[in-house]
Design a protein around this nucleic acid. Structure first.
Lengths: 139, 139
DNA sequence: GTCGCTCTTCACGGAAAGCTTCACGGCCCG
DNA sequence: CGGGCCGTGAAGCTTTCCGTGAAGAGCGAC
């Protein structure tokens, strides 16, 4: 099942903001877009949705832009996916009474597994993985 | 992320065939379609794809129809999803060199988790769950 | 206060995929 | 040889995805 690029773009944007989180400065949309290879006007919509879901916040005017609403450790891949698509994984069978109950339970398990995995991947950890990689070069 | 109904339909069809597996008889497409609430002409295409992926086989002519190619215990939800969509879960980031490496690793983990979960759900187990439920009614 | 910078909002549109249906040809059995 | 069933391809319709554009509104600088 192919995922949409939207959640991918969103995750990249959050990662970009996570890197700047310690500085406390806001990052501009166009700057993020160029850095991450995302169409600027599309990224605008994505950030807007992330904002309504309280994952990021915005600052207007000069030196404005976007920044994370919480520390990177408190934002997970699951949060981002839910912000974009409502659910991490949503099997249509769960809402269809015609689907045999035992099969619906199987889909529910798959959904739970994906959700659990996505919720255990937070952006602080992702950042630290890149840090670990850099350290290795010093050896 | 919403899944398509296609893999849902496919799973229902496989479950219907799994129930009839012990009898060794082939089930007709239209029969399965009515029982599972699937558009008949669409189910034909699905079964055709399942057949090319060697999950089911067909018998032509009178008393023809479809049956499982292997025992229900050797067919998993992962098999069905891969037959329909190529992958259980396919994040576009994995094929995009512009995506930061550490983020791609996070997507890869999510994918692996979903795959592992889907592959551990086989149809024999699903059948037995419905059996367990029936037993409970006898208490 | 006005000007430039930035986010905000809304609307549009092409492209692709998903879902469904139709039509016709081929195989098997009585 | 004829009826029932699978095999195959193609054609619509609908919805979602992806991306673009332009006009409106808050903030700071001067």
């Amino acid at each position: 099942m192919k995922l949409s690029v939207k959640s991918d773009y969103a995750a990249r944007a959050v990662l970009g903001l996570a890197r700047a989180f310690v500085t406390g400065a806001a990052r501009k949309v166009e700057e993020l877009a160029l850095e991450q290879g995302i169409p600027g006007n599309y990224l605008v919509q994505i950030l807007l949705e992330l904002k309504t879901k309280q994952l990021v916040r915005s600052v207007r005017g000069k030196d404005g832009g976007y920044l994370l609403a919480r520390p990177p450790g408190q934002i997970t891949l699951g949060d981002v996916m839910r912000a974009m698509h409502g659910e991490v994984l949503d099997p249509p069978a769960l809402g269809d009474p015609q689907c045999p109950l035992e099969l619906r339970e199987a889909w529910a398990r798959l959904k739970a597994a994906a959700e659990q995995a996505a919720d255990s991947l937070d952006f602080q950890t992702v950042l630290e993985q890149s840090g670990d990689r850099e350290k290795m070069y010093y050896i």
